[in-house]
């Protein structure tokens, strides 16, 4: 929020108080360190938008404009309708008109809660705007203009029937939207986990002898899940009071995750570092084709190295179905070439 103005406004009123409370500063003698922030510096970094819309920038964007941004920059991870569960959990779905009236999402109640979507949980529309503005798109955060943020926010709300397809979101209409959010009344702060001195939920006692404990085993890992986390023998020392239990054949590097080489020395590490593996696996299609599928298609084609390297940086769609791949400008040309070479050689 724009605090410079506010800080200036309260300056006079604050000075006396500040002087009174800061009499015994531990920084006495050191407070010449640091320097005043300039208004331009504060404006550059102070991008948060609060639930009361303090900090909301001027601007506007329509659902239609939002759809255009969505299709080029958001859809590849979130799906055409914000329904995708492939890369991230779904954004839209799970709410009703009745929820919009009551401000409480009914499908959050009960034992059979489905996958919780963003719009099922969202209680303040500022949160959606603020997050898209600071952190999206995934691989190029803070690259959208304020108008684009308005537009994409409008489109996400449209996907969940909170606004109609001709809606234009701006700093005024966003307030109406707040009053239609399906879960706007869904939060409570009535709990003891906010303050150190807060009240606890449970009241166990420290019984020591012959306690009334229910010692029936009610849950354990099913036999088929024994190796779900790899060979546990490889996750403990081979000396000391215990050994890891052998749950699978050794050798298989448990976990896809155990790095066999220091990061940066393998091309796979590079692909991970630059976010490629969010959408591409080795063999199978996730969002985009597996690396080896790409290698197969381009095998023996002239100029394939240049073509794939260029595609990594520029993005594209159509070659592997309708799901577009966003431009990966975080890689320079040399890095893109290095990755392309690795992919085309079978990603080994």
């Amino acid at each position: 929020m724009s605090s410079w103005d506010r800080a200036t406004a309260i300056k006079l009123g604050l000075s006396a108080l500040a002087l009174a409370t800061i009499a015994a500063s531990p920084l006495a003698g050191a407070s010449n360190l640091g320097r005043p922030a300039t208004p331009a510096e504060i404006a550059a970094w102070d991008i948060d938008v609060r639930p009361d819309f303090a900090g909301l920038p001027a601007g506007s964007g329509s659902v239609e404009q939002g759809m255009e941004v969505w299709e080029s920059k958001c859809e590849s991870c979130h799906g055409t309708f914000g329904e995708s569960n492939e890369v991230f959990t779904p954004l839209a779905g799970g709410t009703t008109r009745a929820d919009q009236d009551s401000g409480r999402v009914k499908s959050l109640v009960g034992p059979n809660v489905p996958q919780r979507t963003t719009l099922m949980k969202l209680s303040t529309v500022s949160t959606l705007f603020d997050y898209i503005r600071r952190a999206m798109p995934w691989n190029a955060p803070k690259s959208l203009s304020d108008d684009e943020v308005y537009a994409v926010t409008a489109y996400v709300l449209y996907l969940n029937d909170v606004v109609s397809d001709d809606f234009v979101l701006d700093q005024d209409s966003i307030r109406e939207v707040q009053n239609r959010l399906p879960n706007r009344n869904g939060m409570t702060r009535d709990h003891g986990l906010w303050e150190v001195a807060g009240k606890a939920d449970t009241h166990n006692t420290a019984c020591m002898k012959n306690c009334a404990a229910d010692v029936e085993i009610s849950s354990s890992l099913p036999e088929y899940a024994r190796d779900s986390h790899g060979n546990l023998a490889d996750q403990n020392r081979s000396f000391g009071p215990v050994r890891g239990t052998t749950t699978a054949a050794s050798a298989a590097p448990a976990a896809t995750t155990a790095p066999t080489q220091p990061a940066g020395t393998s091309r796979l590490a590079m692909a991970e570092e630059y976010g490629c593996t969010g959408c591409h696996a080795m063999d199978d299609t996730i969002v985009g084709p597996g690396f080896r599928q790409v290698a197969q298609r381009y095998a023996d084609k002239a100029g394939s190295l240049d073509q794939v390297a260029a595609k990594i940086r520029a993005g594209g769609s159509g070659a592997w179905g309708s799901m577009p791949m966003p431009a990966q400008e975080q890689l320079n040309e040399e890095q893109a070439r290095e990755l392309a070479e690795w992919i085309l050689s079978g990603a080994n």
């Binding site: 999402v105 959050l108 209680s123 879960n183 986990l193 906010w194």
Partner: peptide
């Protein structure tokens, strides 16, 4: 169905 917000400790 209520969500506890600002649970921290």
């Amino acid at each position: 169905g209520a969500q506890r917000q600002y649970t921290s400790i």
